[in-house]
Design a protein around this nucleic acid. Structure first.
Lengths: 109, 109
DNA sequence: ATATTCTATTGTAATATTACGATTAAGCTT
DNA sequence: AAGCTTAATCGTAATATTACAATAGAATAT
C-alpha cells in the first residue's frame, strides 16, 4: 500500500489531481506568485526572498517544471523561470470547469 | 526535517495550499464530482462506485471535511455528505484570484 | 587555467500520505 | 435484547514529501 491507485480513475481526474498537487504547497504558491509579479523572470532571487535553502527551492522548481506549470531557460550563469502560458491556460480552464460544476445548495443536508 | 515551514509564508498562501492539497487526489476529486452530480447527498454509495475500501473512502471524506470543503450529517444509519457552500465559494474566489494573477506572456524566456 | 557564481543533484532524516484489514460505535430491525 | 447495516477509528505497511548539507556541473570572470 501507500501508492495512489491511479488506474481506477479517469485520465482527467488524475491530471487535475496532479496539477493541484503541484501547487498544493505554500512555497510553490509563493514561487508562482513571485514569478507572476515580475513579468520578467527570476531565479536565484527566490532563494533570497523565501526563507528556504537553495536545494529546497530547486526541488520545488523541479516539481513545478515536471507538472509543466513553469519552464526554465538558461540565461548565462543563472536560470530564468517563467509560467508556461499554454499549460496555465489549460489548467485554469480545467480547474474552472471542476469548480463551476457546483451549482449551489439545491436541497441538501 | 520533513515538515512544511508554514511560518515563513502568509496566511493566504498557507490556506490556499491547504485547500488545493485537500483536492489534490484523484479519489477526492471523484468524490467531489460524485457529490456535485447528485444534488441530493450520498454516502456509502461512494464505496460501491469508486474501487476503494470503505476505510480508505472514510479517510478521504475526513480530509475533505477537515478542509471544510464538505460537511456530513447523520441520516439515520447512514451519513449524508454535501458541499459546504460558503467554503466552496470562498475557495473558488481564492483560487480564481490566484490563477488570474497571470496576465499572459509579457516578455519572458 | 583558476576562481567565482549559480543551479542541479545526491544523500539522508523526519514526517506525511495512501491504502486496507480489523475493530469499534451508533442506529435501525426484528 | 440480538442481529444487521453503516460509517468511523485504529493499527500497520508501503511509499511519498519536505527540508537541508554537501557535492557536482556549467558558465562567466579574473
Amino acid at each position: 500500500m501507500g501508492l495512489t491507485k491511479t488506474e481506477i480513475f479517469t485520465a482527467e481526474q488524475n491530471q487535475l489531481a496532479q496539477l493541484l498537487k503541484a501547487m498544493a504547497h505554500p512555497a510553490r504558491i509563493a514561487i508562482l506568485q513571485r514569478i507572476m509579479a515580475s513579468n520578467t523572470c527570476i531565479c536565484g532571487d527566490l532563494v533570497d526572498e523565501l526563507g528556504l535553502a537553495q536545494a529546497t527551492i530547486s526541488q520545488h522548481l523541479k516539481e513545478l517544471k515536471n507538472a509543466g506549470i513553469i519552464q526554465g531557460t538558461i540565461e548565462g550563469v543563472s536560470v530564468c523561470y517563467c509560467i508556461n502560458p499554454e499549460i496555465w491556460g489549460l489548467m485554469t480552464a480545467q480547474i474552472g470547469t471542476f469548480l463551476n460544476a457546483y451549482k449551489g445548495p439545491v436541497s441538501c443536508c
